[in-house]
Simulated scan of single mutants.
Amino acid sequence: MKDGEHVQERAEQTRRSLLEAAASLFDERGYAGTSISDITARSGHTSGAIYFHYTSKERLALAVVEEHFATWPPLIERYASTEAAPLDQLVRLSFAVARAFRDDIVVRAGARLWTERTLIEAPLPPPFVGWMDAVGQMMEKARAEGDLAAHVDPLPAARTVVCAFFGLHTVSEALDGRRLVEDHLTDLWTLLLPSLRARPGDTAGLLAAARVPRAQG
């Protein structure tokens, strides 16, 4: 490896280390409860490194939120590109997203920071709109393939599913720290899928399969 490439790799490792340390603190303590000193102690890097890579706590918080939002497009593409029926794709995707909210520190921190956005003096990306578009496309595809019940209007249904999904996460976070989020999601889809499908399907089998993380490939 050339010297320049080594320096660039070390810089990227430092940036990631700072981002993850900040994310863990933002998730635990919130934006106002986290200081630059806290981040230096958690990360093992100096405050100078923080200011060099991110310039301020606000910019570091923004980077966490942006990383949170950047998680979703490749995940959506990964599940939408399978050969499964669109509604099955949507169910499997929803469980992958739920696991990310439960297990990924940057995703969790990004979600908390967005709820505390009035404290952060930096513009944050808008939430939910991208999810409504993605779910709407899956619903439209399901209708085109004859899998969506005739009474279901794809776009309003997509908004409803997104609202229900993120409402479920809010309740699960408050009551059980998202530990039982997959159980709650199973209950939600058990209720919703029969009304969305044009034909009866193996809901229990699909939900059991969706709870098993899909191997990277």
Score class of each variant (00 low, 15 high):
7 V>A: 15
9 E>Y: 06
9 E>W: 11
10 R>P: 00
11 A>G: 05
11 A>Y: 06
12 E>A: 15
13 Q>I: 03
13 Q>R: 14
13 Q>L: 13
13 Q>G: 07
13 Q>W: 01
14 T>V: 09
14 T>P: 00
14 T>N: 04
15 R>L: 02
15 R>C: 03
15 R>I: 01
15 R>S: 05
16 R>Q: 14
16 R>N: 15
17 S>K: 13
18 L>Y: 07
19 L>D: 00
22 A>T: 04
23 A>Y: 08
23 A>W: 01
23 A>T: 10
24 S>D: 04
25 L>E: 02
26 F>P: 07
26 F>T: 09
28 E>S: 14
28 E>W: 08
29 R>L: 03
30 G>V: 04
30 G>W: 00
31 Y>L: 11
31 Y>N: 12
31 Y>D: 10
31 Y>I: 07
31 Y>S: 11
31 Y>K: 09
32 A>K: 13
33 G>C: 02
33 G>Y: 00
33 G>L: 02
36 I>H: 01
38 D>S: 06
38 D>Y: 03
38 D>F: 01
41 A>G: 14
41 A>R: 15
41 A>V: 14
43 S>C: 04
44 G>V: 08
46 T>G: 08
46 T>W: 03
47 S>P: 00
48 G>W: 05
49 A>D: 06
49 A>I: 06
49 A>S: 09
49 A>N: 08
50 I>S: 00
51 Y>S: 11
52 F>A: 13
52 F>W: 10
53 H>I: 05
53 H>E: 08
55 T>R: 14
55 T>C: 10
56 S>C: 09
56 S>K: 11
59 R>S: 08
61 A>F: 05
62 L>Y: 05
62 L>C: 10
64 V>W: 01
64 V>A: 03
64 V>G: 00
66 E>N: 11
68 H>Q: 08
70 A>N: 15
71 T>V: 13
71 T>K: 11
72 W>R: 06
72 W>D: 07
73 P>A: 14
74 P>F: 02
74 P>A: 05
74 P>V: 02
77 E>Y: 10
77 E>W: 04
77 E>R: 15
78 R>I: 09
81 S>G: 11
81 S>C: 09
82 T>I: 04
82 T>Y: 03
82 T>M: 06
84 A>I: 07
86 P>Q: 06
87 L>T: 04
87 L>Q: 01
88 D>V: 14
89 Q>D: 10
89 Q>C: 15
92 R>K: 15
95 F>Y: 13
96 A>S: 12
96 A>F: 09
98 A>R: 07
98 A>V: 12
99 R>S: 11
100 A>L: 14
